[in-house]
């Protein structure tokens, strides 16, 4: 995906607020790119532009052939339908793609099982813990037949141990079904463990301060790795 000289501004109290100015970035297909930057710098705006929820004022976002088609999202909150079971919450996003209900249920169950909630398929979201609900959201975004995934701080509101367990669940699914992923986070450690490319961003209007490619396989990464420790330090400097 090539993000080419993209600009975007909003009108705030009749004054233009420039969020992105000539922003460019290239992301390799089927890799995870983490965007780390201060609040309000424009990370979410970039996600919305990539997801075509909004249009760029200037510039373009060119997707490779494998990246064309639906885009799936993982939000800060799980955003589940509280009236329906875990299974229905995942199955419903497949409705436009599979006419056969049995097929939809099979696919949904596959992903629900992959996030470890096979026994909870009939449960409604309010019967689950916060972490379990976010797992359902992960299953839903992977079940959705997308070629691009957009993650907007999906693990932010969870405690550390739960966060790591969800990161593992996410990576487990991602390794099985790789997709180009743009991942917004404040958490440098999370970014270093998950991403192939970690980008440090400036305040608004958002600019790239530095980029780090991490080649260590995700499964073997550890925060005790001296390379990652020094990278982490560079983010705080």
């Amino acid at each position: 995906m090539i993000i080419n000289d993209v600009s975007k501004s909003y009108l705030v109290n009749s004054e233009p607020l420039e969020v992105l100015k000539d922003f460019s970035l290239t992301i390799e297909p089927n890799t995870i790119c983490a965007l780390v930057g201060p609040s309000g710098c424009g990370k979410t705006t970039l996600l919305r532009l990539v997801g075509e929820l909004e249009a760029c004022d200037k510039g373009s976002i060119v997707k490779s052939e494998s990246e064309l088609g639906p885009v799936s999202y993982l939000f800060q909150e799980p955003r589940l339908l509280p009236w329906f079971s875990v299974l229905t919450n995942v199955e419903v996003v497949l409705r436009p793609f599979y006419e056969n209900k049995a097929e939809r249920v099979d696919i949904a169950m596959k992903f629900i099982k992959m996030v470890g909630l096979g026994d909870y398929a009939k449960f409604k979201p309010d019967m689950l813990s916060g972490g379990m609900r976010q797992r359902v959201a992960i299953a839903r975004s992977f079940a959705y037949p997308s070629s691009i995934m957009l993650l907007d701080e999906p693990f932010q509101s969870l405690d550390a141990s739960l966060r790591w367990s969800l990161v593992k669940s996410f990576l487990h699914l991602w390794e099985a079904e790789k997709r180009t992923t743009l991942y917004v986070t404040h958490d440098v450690q999370e970014a270093l463990l998950m991403a192939d490319l970690v980008i440090k961003l400036s305040k608004r209007p958002m600019e790239i301060i530095n980029k780090h490619y991490i080649t260590t396989p995700k499964a073997t990464r550890s925060l005790a790795d001296p390379k990652l420790i020094s990278l982490q330090a560079s983010f705080y400097n």
Binding site: G51, S72, Y73, F75, R79, V93, R95, P96
Partner: peptide, 9 residues
């Protein structure tokens, strides 16, 4: 917004 993003009919 979720229903819009996941292209609900």
């Amino acid at each position: 917004e979720m229903s819009q993003l996941f292209a609900f009919s």
